[in-house]
């Protein structure tokens, strides 16, 4: 493992990394103080520094929705904001939706309607759906489809995701998809 360039390593001025700052996040109702560099996204703060890995990194560029969390009650892509910019904010992640052992109705509906396969997009889908319901602007399955389009599911569970959300919002699923015998 000879390193031709290793000589260059010694005597070099270190290139600094950003100075760490203290950030306070209220995550799932619990105050969490973090000492992190400003270049840490909210997503990485949750996953790497708070061990809240329920929030997923799918693309890291706002193109998939796997990182969706609720910040001050609104759904956002946590990959495209810096944790330091959310200092003091209320953050709700998938880990904060259930009440103790009792699952959030969306979580229960996702299981019942088999609204996922690999499960990787699922926390983002559920947080997004929670945001969608809170926004209170949805009345039809078409509107659910449109307003859930920021959450990609490569396993293709969309019809079941819509059915699960409908079940929670309207008490029943109107989407006709699915198997005989489901």
């Amino acid at each position: 493992m000879a390193r031709p360039s290793s000589a260059a390593r010694t005597g070099l001025e270190k290139i600094p990394t950003p100075a760490k700052v203290t950030v306070t996040l209220h995550v799932n109702g619990v105050e969490r103080k973090l000492t992190i560099a400003p270049w840490t996204t909210l997503l990485d703060a949750l996953r790497l520094y708070l061990d809240l890995t329920g929030t997923k990194k799918g693309c890291d560029h706002g193109q998939c929705g796997a990182c969706t969390v609720l910040v001050d009650g609104r759904r956002i892509n946590s990959c495209l904001t810096l944790a330091v910019m959310k200092d003091g904010a209320q953050v709700t992640t998938i880990e904060g939706l259930a009440q103790g052992n009792a699952l959030h109705p969306l979580q229960q509906a996702f299981i019942e309607h088999d609204a996922f396969q690999c499960g990787y997009c699922t926390p983002g889908q559920i947080c997004s759906a929670a945001g969608l319901i809170a926004e209170g602007r949805v009345q039809t399955a078409d509107e659910i489809r449109e307003l859930m389009s920021g959450n990609i599911c490569r396993c293709g569970a969309y019809p079941n995701i819509v059915a699960a959300i409908e079940a929670v919002m309207f008490g029943k699923a109107t989407d006709r998809s699915g198997a005989t015998g489901r």
Binding site: G65, T68, R74, I76, L80, S128, G131, S149, G150, N151
Partner: peptide
């Protein structure tokens, strides 16, 4: 444009 999450941000 974009998605609901991005529009929120």
């Amino acid at each position: 444009g974009a998605s609901p999450q991005l529009r929120n941000m």
